[in-house]
């Protein structure tokens, strides 16, 4: 693969590098310079000594993350939810993208495309009001229906059993449009000649999907999944904090690293501890992505991310 890099060969790429320069500079400023601040996680920060002058304190700032018996629960929740989100959102997103792309009626197609993205426009706080309108124990629509059917009402915000499903549903409801649109764009980019050839060969719909559409979407799928894995130790704070209305009884199934950090540091926090939490999440995410990428590279170097 390695070509010998001669000046003549290299020279022809110079215009390409020039095209990249503005973006590379912006990324350097916006992302790389502030990364120096990671040192704060290992320091006892004092503003008068500055970021680099403050005293080192080893791993003290990380203590609060693991010093509690909840450490296991929150790490487990964060991981499992993210795995569930990746699977559910990708599957739903691909399925929706495929069938929306197949809709013939132009007007309906537009309607579907627009509507799946609508929830994406709402902030989590607002979504939490909507969810509460359904689940409220006193006033909620679901309990109103249960009452009218003569059944016992459910104490949604005290019973942690249903919450994994509620959160996965809300997350899919809000986020699936995003992934679906990317896949719709991906499907739009597939050469129609493939399908024409397949139809001539007598392939049915299902065969077209499994033999043409999905394989063509593999690069997009891998990209989206790898990027999600990178954030596997992070969680959408709004989803886990606002939607369950901060109810303590639900913590066994709703506490994640981000909500724990927020709750613990709500008073007396300090930037050392919060950046320690960030570093921990980043390091784990980084490791997992490197491993997954290596695996992808093994299977199909073509599709590896880098």
């Amino acid at each position: 693969m390695k070509q010998k890099l001669t000046w003549a060969h290299f020279k022809q790429f110079i215009p390409l590098y020039i095209m990249m320069v503005p973006s590379l500079v912006y990324i350097f400023i916006n992302n790389y310079i502030p990364m120096a601040g990671i040192v704060v996680a290992f320091k006892k920060y004092n503003v008068n000594d500055g970021m680099f002058g403050s005293a080192w304190c080893g791993l003290d700032n990380f203590q609060f993350l693991f010093g509690t018996s909840d450490a296991f629960v929150m790490i487990r929740n964060t991981l499992l939810y993210n795995v569930a989100f990746i699977i559910v959102n990708q599957c739903l997103g691909i399925a929706l993208a495929i069938i929306i792309s197949d809709v013939i009626n132009k007007g309906l197609k537009k309607l579907y495309q627009s509507s799946i993205l609508l929830p994406f426009l709402l902030s989590m706080v607002v979504v939490s009001y909507i969810v509460f309108a359904f689940l409220s124990q006193e006033n909620g629509m679901i309990n109103a229906v249960l009452k009218s059917m003569g059944k016992d009402i459910v104490y949604w915000y005290q019973d942690n059993g249903p919450w994994p499903f509620i959160l996965i549903f809300v997350n899919a409801w809000k986020g699936v449009g995003y992934g679906a649109l990317i896949y719709i764009a991906g499907i739009a980019g597939i050469d129609p000649a493939f399908y024409e050839a397949a139809e001539l060969d007598g392939a049915n719909k299902w065969q077209q999907i499994t033999k043409i559409t999905l394989p063509c979407l593999v690069p997009q799928i891998i990209t989206l999944v790898l990027m999600a894995i990178g954030r596997i130790f992070a969680s959408d704070f709004g989803l886990f904090y606002q939607i369950p209305q901060n109810s303590g009884a639900l913590f066994p199934t709703t506490q994640t690293i981000d909500t724990y950090v927020y709750r613990a540091l709500i008073q007396a926090g300090g930037i050392g501890r919060s950046s320690a939490a960030g570093v921990f999440q980043s390091v784990v995410g980084f490791t997992l992505v490197m491993i997954s990428n290596a695996v992808v590279r093994k299977i199909s170097a073509e599709n590896a991310m880098f």
């Binding site: 590379l24 990324i27 400023i29 916006n30 992302n31 790389y32 310079i33 502030p34 990364m35 120096a36 601040g37 990671i38 704060v40 970021m51 990027m227 990178g230 954030r231 930037i271 919060s274 950046s275 960030g278 980043s282 995410g285 980084f286 992505v289 991310m305 880098f306």
Partner: peptide, 20 residues
């Protein structure tokens, strides 16, 4: 590629960016 991708994983946090 890595230069771009790496920024998704690590961030210096709010305060250093704010200072800059």
């Amino acid at each position: 590629n890595f230069y771009v991708f790496f920024t998704m994983l690590f961030s210096g946090g709010l305060v250093p960016a704010y200072i800059m």
